[in-house]
Design a protein around this nucleic acid. Sequence first.
DNA 1: TATGAATGAGTTTTCATTCAT
DNA 2: AATGAATGAAAACTCATTCAT
Lengths: 196, 196, 196, 196
Amino acid sequence: MRHKEGNKGKDIIEAAITCFAKKGYHHTKIIDIAVLANVAVGSVYVYYKDKEDILLKIFKNLWDSIYFKISELSKNSNLSPEKMIAAMIDDLFDAFIENPNIAIVFVNEQPQIAKISRTFYNKLYERYLDIGEEFIKKGIEKKIFSQEFNIKTFRIFIFGAIRHLIHHWAESNGKVSLSKIKEDVKYLVKNGILVR
Amino acid sequence: MRHKEGNKGKDIIEAAITCFAKKGYHHTKIIDIAVLANVAVGSVYVYYKDKEDILLKIFKNLWDSIYFKISELSKNSNLSPEKMIAAMIDDLFDAFIENPNIAIVFVNEQPQIAKISRTFYNKLYERYLDIGEEFIKKGIEKKIFSQEFNIKTFRIFIFGAIRHLIHHWAESNGKVSLSKIKEDVKYLVKNGILVR
Amino acid sequence: MRHKEGNKGKDIIEAAITCFAKKGYHHTKIIDIAVLANVAVGSVYVYYKDKEDILLKIFKNLWDSIYFKISELSKNSNLSPEKMIAAMIDDLFDAFIENPNIAIVFVNEQPQIAKISRTFYNKLYERYLDIGEEFIKKGIEKKIFSQEFNIKTFRIFIFGAIRHLIHHWAESNGKVSLSKIKEDVKYLVKNGILVR
Amino acid sequence: MRHKEGNKGKDIIEAAITCFAKKGYHHTKIIDIAVLANVAVGSVYVYYKDKEDILLKIFKNLWDSIYFKISELSKNSNLSPEKMIAAMIDDLFDAFIENPNIAIVFVNEQPQIAKISRTFYNKLYERYLDIGEEFIKKGIEKKIFSQEFNIKTFRIFIFGAIRHLIHHWAESNGKVSLSKIKEDVKYLVKNGILVR
DNA sequence: TATGAATGAGTTTTCATTCAT
DNA sequence: AATGAATGAAAACTCATTCAT
């Protein structure tokens, strides 16, 4: 087969996600990816500039799809700030449900991405968090959300918390339910731990 | 003896923390550490078995000191569950204040540690989180804390959130105040974002 | 047919000469040649067996044309040994005037050719130098040329000198006149540097 | 043996000269050099930055020694221009007599050197040729040498001729005498081919 | 203990060549 | 004849680790 068929580019990305999740970026050899993707080593370099490029593309694909969903929703609906924050949490969790390996790569290799390109890394999810911030502000204005806390802290807080939970879930091999976790998160974010 | 006797073992650990924070574990060469610690390459191997061992020791030192503080407190005081949770958050944050580089290594190289030894990794902070869990349970029993949420989720949630905030602070080069963040976290944990 | 039919084989050779001159044989990629010749990579292999074959053909074409000119002259004219040697020098220089890139390839890649095939390499210009040797002998017999020197040394001497001058000219980007050089060479060969 | 002994740096250079002469720079693998020098691959990189660096050092050593000899002579003696030119030719030839392999590398890899660093390449023998030029000028002034020819052409001419002859000798495996060639060259340079 | 020259296994990347279309 | 996606062998270079001193 010499002429383009199938989708080697996609096969390679998927093989890479599996390898990175299992052994980590640095311990994954190009030949591991190639074997799993059922292509020759050289073919990896036909589709991606180098190993870093593969990792970058994985993150780009992931965040593009997360951002797309939530930005559509924010434009086309009129959800209350409270509902919107819940939706954002839902969408973020949902992005990983189909493929726990992406969740593992997402958490473990984030430092790698930052090392490769700080700018790329920041742009990646900044847009997403900006939308969240916007709705938090609205909620505060409408006196739905508390005036007491700092928005920047909140966005980092909530993002870090979710990241860690997703990681935990991905490594538990289905022993915990992500839907249940999702609901707990939404409850905690809204109410905290004190009895109301 | 007049010469600086110093403590080569400690010098090496400190040099390693700086290097790992700056370039990441995998991009740090043993010679980088040796040069910064002002010792010969061979000396690194006198004090540590190999490169992994250095990273392991960094994490061990860190968690031992965090755990020690909080376990003393839990044994010797009679703080309310609410106060105890706040103290745990305080102590965790405080562990990093003196050296932001440890915070960066702590967050970035956690996956490495897990790769090296899953068991070691789990034991590292399990003891700490167990104490937290215990006090959450007490709080729920005493109806101080809500019955609604899942304790496991909570411990992961809060830990992930704090980890991410500490990382953010460490990389901001002192532009954000960790004390302020600490207070916000305690507020959020207790109350969530809804107006009470 | 309206389309440029062209001569792909020739286009490829010409592109190769340009590439080899600019980057050297080893640093030239087949795709570089293909792009410059405006053909597909695969087409290069339709016309030439492999990369070496292209280089071989360049040298063969060059020497065939040089030899053809001078062998015609030697057969059909009755020039004196002195004039004949001058004519050979002229012709050798002239072969490069139209395309300095060939001169650069000629000098730089000669070792390559020798590496590829010692026999081929020798045959390449042996015929040409043989003619020269023949006329030197005649000149010595007729007492026009000195008895003192060794013919073999002379043929190597003169050829090396010319090769180096041509190279120098080719790399000077037209800043020196090849015609002037040619005259100087003829003078030096005949007279040496001593005042007569 | 862990502590510096012997002279691995020199062994590597010598092995490299042999390999480059036999197979050419591009066809020589680092491991070829290492094996011949009786060191490990890694050791080559302890002494030299990379493959190019080895080649550069070979040329630098060669020209430094040629230049040193002739510059001493030019400063400390009062040779006539005629004798001086002869001495320069002698010295250049002599540099190769002990090691024909250097001669082969010298001729074959010169283009490589130019490709690596044009500046380095020019500086290499420019000093040597400058001295030659100086004595040619003196000879012309004193009417010993002919006014007719161009000095620049001469220096390129003579250098190219010698280079080629040395190469020829080095590849002949001792079948031709370099001393005899040397004398012929001196004769040709002085007298040319015409009967006086 | 301390040293640092020496080692060589391990990996990424390149690129000439092939061949199904 | 023409194409260019696919291949995989080949090689440079790195760096953790060792060990004679």
